[in-house]
Design a protein around this nucleic acid. Structure first.
Length: 569
RNA sequence: GUUCACGUAGCUCAGUUGGAUAGAGUGUUGCCCUCCGAAGGCAAAGGUCACGAGUUCGACUCUCGUCGUGGACACCA
């Protein structure tokens, strides 16, 4: 809100100077000179064919002539070759800090249009243990959901479990082999069994074409409604879901719908009928396809495959069916897919097919791709023996490393330890920009110093401890006492920008960046201003106001990253 | 082969419509606990922004090319 007000003042001054442009007021990149700056003199110079120096000086003198100048600025200057430097007045800063305290949601501007975002960020597979690869979609998706919701949008989260693919056929094959003398209704197995059998079958099918074909056949029959397979499948789901939910629960990742691909199957025939009527389905090499390439394409975009030559459905089929179903049922404005960047071509095909079929426009569909977690060799992260790392083991490893840092950590309650482990992992992951691969470094994931989740938690707890029992009588005054105080108040105002950017670009790391910077400024304040020894009551009152708001902002933003605050550290 | 993403300090990474002196963390070297928690604060050193052209008053940012890394390229998910 404050930025908009600043901008409006500038609009007026520009008009008064005889020009017409909506300027952009941005955070100063020379904090030694000013708080905010406007660089649009260059643009105006081009538009009006005058020198930016002349234009800038005109605008600056219009600003300086404002009747209520001090409501906004302490100082406005022009700097060569074309910068307008704005230093905000204490009155202005404190006014908006007070509004952040008083108004709902830190005085965020209400949304012009509330939209419904349908988020697909699960991708966990039934019958396979969750591994490192499932970590990023879960925490990025969860964070995006919370950010969108905080911003004012509606969200629906769908786990979209992989529960009807080849891996199920493989596991069913193994069950029938291992329990061949047991009547189907009496077959009982547990999670340990699935954990053992899946890797075994997966390996064997890669080596044995005949076995693979058998498992594919089982998968198809399951999809077609084979009763025996269906019974086993239900049990596989029940057994696996316990672990899947346990892990997601630990990570604070929650879904509105725990749907799997299997849910799409009843819709597939309906969808196919719609597609056939539109006449966009073709036959090619025995398969049913939809052409999705365009003349403007630089790359060869392969056709979307609706049906395999053996009549079976595949990944693309269920994804398109799920779009059809989601649109029919929920009418979302956007569907977001949080999935590995490697799947970008797949989503491109699905999105084009969806648009061609008239389900939902291409522009409403978005694949939020992210890089893979690599080991130090630049290849996907594996254990020493070359296996994918189980998520459970990774979490345990981080916990062990944390506990060994300090003797006293072992005395902490399990709930607090869990929260800190979450903070370590999530902050380490989310602070990277999404599109890059990143290197998994055990040391980094065990670190609690510097730019880490625990640093944020620690900052929060220290400040919270000293102000939690104080009740405030007077509102925050407009006096700013020193540079640390000023820096903290200015930083608090930036919250809106951080969240807005994160929403607009679907990038949680803007929140991390801001959160860390806020904590640095807050720590600075803390180090240089001792609350206890203060005798000036108004100053003490104001400091508590500012610190309290700081803790509230930290807590709110941590929640957007799905990080909870422990009771002690 | 075609194509997409990436290449910024020793290491791990930010850099939000192209703007002034490219920022953090970590590591290294020094300081700061008789005052609210040292998982903290301060300071120093550390850069041909992969390389070469181009567009622009101005390029880490945009365009093209080269090199390097990773990925994708119809019946797997």
């Amino acid at each position: 809100m404050y930025l908009e007000d600043l901008q409006n003042v500038l609009v007026k001054a520009i008009k008064e100077a005889g020009y017409d442009l909506t300027p952009s007021v941005i955070l100063s990149n020379r904090p030694d000179l000013c708080d905010y700056q406007c660089d649009d003199c260059f643009k105006l110079a081009k538009m009006y064919g005058e020198s930016p120096v002349v234009i800038g000086n005109k605008i600056v003198s219009c600003l300086q002539g404002l009747e209520n100048f001090s409501d906004y600025f302490k100082e406005v200057t022009f700097a060569n070759p074309g910068f307008i430097n704005l230093t905000l007045s204490d009155t202005f800063i404190s006014k908006y800090v007070r509004l952040m305290e008083e108004k709902e949601k830190f005085n965020f501007k209400p949304l012009e249009k509330k939209e419904l975002f349908y988020l697909d960020y699960g991708g966990a597979n039934i019958a396979k243990p969750l591994h490192v690869g499932h970590l990023r979609p879960a925490i990025i998706g969860e964070s995006l959901k919370r950010i969108l919701k905080f911003y004012g949008h509606s969200t629906l989260a769908d786990a979209h479990l992989g529960d009807f693919g080849l891996q199920i056929g493989e596991v069913i094959y193994a069950i029938l082999r291992d329990f061949k003398d047991v009547p189907v209704d009496d077959i009982q197995f547990d999670l340990a069994y699935l954990d053992k059998v899946y890797p075994e079958m997966s390996k064997k099918c890669k080596e044995d074409e005949h076995l693979l074909a058998t498992c594919q056949e089982i998968t198809k029959e399951l999809q077609d409604g084979n009763e025996v397979y269906d019974k086993l499948w239900k049990q596989i789901c029940d057994v696996s879901m316990i672990q899947v939910k346990e892990l997601y629960d630990f990570l604070g990742v929650d879904f509105d719908y725990w749907y799997g691909e299997s849910e799409c199957f009843p819709i597939i025939p309906v969808m196919k009928e719609v597609l056939m009527k539109q006449g966009i389905v073709k036959e090619s090499e025995g398969a049913k396809i939809i052409e999705v390439k365009k003349d403007t394409d630089k790359i060869e975009v392969p056709p979307f495959i609706l049906e395999k030559s053996n009549g079976a459905s595949l990944y693309s089929t269920t994804d398109l069916a799920s779009i059809y179903e989601r649109v029919e049922r929920h009418h979302p404005d956007h569907i977001l897919y949080v999935a590995d960047s490697r799947q970008s071509l797949h989503f491109e095909q699905v999105f084009r097919a969806s648009e061609k079929a008239g389900f939902i426009p291409y522009s409403s569909l978005k694949h939020i791709g992210f890089g893979t977690i690599n080991g130090k060799d630049g290849k996907p992260f594996k254990t020493r023996s070359g296996e994918t790392v189980k998520l459970k083991d990774l979490l345990k490893e981080v916990e062990t490393a944390f506990l060994s840092l300090k003797e006293t950590n072992k005395e902490m309650g399990q709930e607090d330890i869990d929260k800190i482990v979450n903070a370590i992992i999530k902050f380490a992951d989310l602070q990277n920009s999404l599109d890059k691969n990143y290197i998994f470094d055990t040391e980094k994931f065990a670190s609690v110093v510097g730019k880490t989740g625990p640093y944020i938690l620690y900052t929060y707890l220290r400040i919270h401890k000293m102000i939690k029992d104080v009740t405030l009588e007077d509102a925050l005054s407009s006096t700013i006492y020193d540079e640390y105080d000023r820096a903290l108040r200015l930083k608090l105002l930036e919250m809106e920008k951080a969240v807005t950017s994160a929403v607009q670009e679907y990038r949680p790391h803007y929140i991390c960046e801001y959160l860390y910077n806020l904590c640095v400024v807050a720590n600075n304040f803390y180090q240089n201003n001792h609350l206890q020894s203060l005798t000036d009551l108004q100053k003490k009152n104001d400091y508590i106001h500012v610190l309290r708001l700081t803790t509230e902002v930290i807590k709110t933003l941590l929640d957007l990253l799905a990080i909870e605050i422990p009771s002690v550290m």
